[in-house]
């Protein structure tokens, strides 16, 4: 899944731009998935990814050839997310009761896929996805990012430690604690699922 590309340092700006666009096309899907699981909101994920790509483009000259673009992007996106998260915590969103919520307003305009004609299995998967996302949003963000990188993006512990800039032991502990918290949160859902199957 992960690819590492070699880039020449002696390239003109237009070539570099071409390289950057190519890398974005290859990795936009997993990066968007990562941003979405991290934020839990499509609009926030799009904003985060746009910001991430802008930051990456501005420092693309520092990108080391031979290293993986997606891991570099994971690092950028996570740092941006942490910064935004801290800012949001410092300045909580205050809205008037008379005004419609901006997120809800935006949600109306985005294209929501139509699930009316898909089989039941797919609908169940959608429900499971929603439930897991809700549970992910309830666990601390440092556990969440470790679990997402490990289970959704398929990174090894060493790669995760490089992305997050922490030791292997910390990664191991965060993944384990994150999963155990998810287990506690998803216990009722899985119990109900088991009962339904019986």
């Amino acid at each position: 899944m992960l690819r590492s590309e070699s880039l020449s340092l002696t390239r003109s700006p237009s070539d570099r731009w071409g390289d950057f666009e190519e890398q974005v096309k290859i990795y936009e899907k997993p990066l968007y998935h990562f941003a979405y699981r991290l934020t839990g909101d499509i609009n926030d994920a799009q904003d985060l990814l746009q910001e991430g790509f802008l930051k990456a483009y501005r420092s693309y000259h520092r990108f080391q050839p031979g290293t993986a673009f997606d891991r570099w992007m994971f690092q950028i996106i996570y740092r941006l997310f942490v910064d935004n998260y801290r800012k949001k915590r410092r300045r909580p969103f205050i809205s008037s009761l008379d005004e419609p919520h901006p997120h809800l307003e935006q949600a109306k305009t985005t294209d929501v896929p139509d699930y009316s004609n898909i089989p039941e299995d797919s609908a169940l998967r959608q429900e499971l996805g929603r439930t897991i996302q809700e549970a992910l949003m309830l666990i601390p963000e440092n556990f969440r990012v470790a679990v997402i990188l490990c289970d959704i993006q398929g990174l090894s512990y060493e790669e995760i430690s490089q992305v997050l800039g922490c030791s292997l032991g910390t990664v191991r502990s965060r993944i384990h604690r994150g999963r155990r918290l998810l287990r506690e949160l998803l216990k009722p859902y899985f119990r109900e699922e088991r009962r339904r199957k019986k």
């Binding site: 950057f20 936009e28 968007y32 799009q46 990814l49 998967r125």
Partner: peptide, 22 residues
């Protein structure tokens, strides 16, 4: 089960131009 559920999560449909700001 948790690990398998996370691995099986479907990625969201890509919408919008991510390179707009760039």
């Amino acid at each position: 089960l948790i690990k398998d559920s996370l691995e099986g999560l479907e990625p969201p449909a890509i919408g919008g131009d991510f390179l707009k700001k760039v």
